[in-house]
């Protein structure tokens, strides 16, 4: 006597679980989304940091901005090129990139990140100085 039937059932379930992503996406290619730049962003030509850096490090820059702003009271950030920016998500970043749905959200949704920044900063786009 052996338990081949039960074991094969278990193996089929296991194989189905392991290959689940293949079934789930069956035939659907999912290329990364294109972000839409507003006219204002296009006109500015460059962001606070070079494109590659801002793409991967914007969240850390914002974290540093928040701490510097709140703890040290500094409000101006000067980048490597010597250009100065107000350290503010709402007034600097979202000023150019005012199209949240077609800019921020595109990549965030694709990569399944849900930053809590926008819990406040999207319903209240303009901070009062």
């Amino acid at each position: 006597m052996n338990d081949k039937g039960k074991i094969v059932t278990g193996l089929v379930i296991f194989a189905a679980l392991v290959s689940f992503p293949f079934w789930y996406n069956l035939g659907k290619a999912a290329p990364p989304p294109e972000v839409v730049l507003t006219d204002k962003a296009k006109a500015a030509k460059e962001c606070v940091l070079p494109k590659d850096e801002i793409r991967t490090e914007h969240m850390q820059l914002l974290d540093v901005w928040r701490d510097t702003q709140v703890r040290d009271g500094q409000t101006v950030y000067i980048n490597a090129k010597g250009k100065s920016y107000i350290m503010s998500l709402s007034n600097t970043c979202l000023d150019c990139h005012s199209n949240y749905k077609d800019f921020c959200d595109r990549c965030h949704v694709y990569a399944s990140v849900d930053p809590y920044c926008f819990d406040c900063h999207i319903d209240n786009p303009k901070e009062t100085k």
């Binding site: 992503p21 293949f22 789930y24 996406n25 069956l26 035939g27 659907k28 290619a29 999912a30 290329p31 990364p32 989304p33 590659d52 793409r55 991967t56 490090e57 850390q60 990549c107 694709y110 990569a111």
Partner: peptide
């Protein structure tokens, strides 16, 4: 050491959808 997450997902999604 940050990496480009969107390119990575493009690759991993390519792996599971063969495109």
């Amino acid at each position: 050491s940050k990496v480009d997450i969107l390119s990575i997902k493009a690759l991993t999604m390519g792996l599971v959808s063969f495109s």
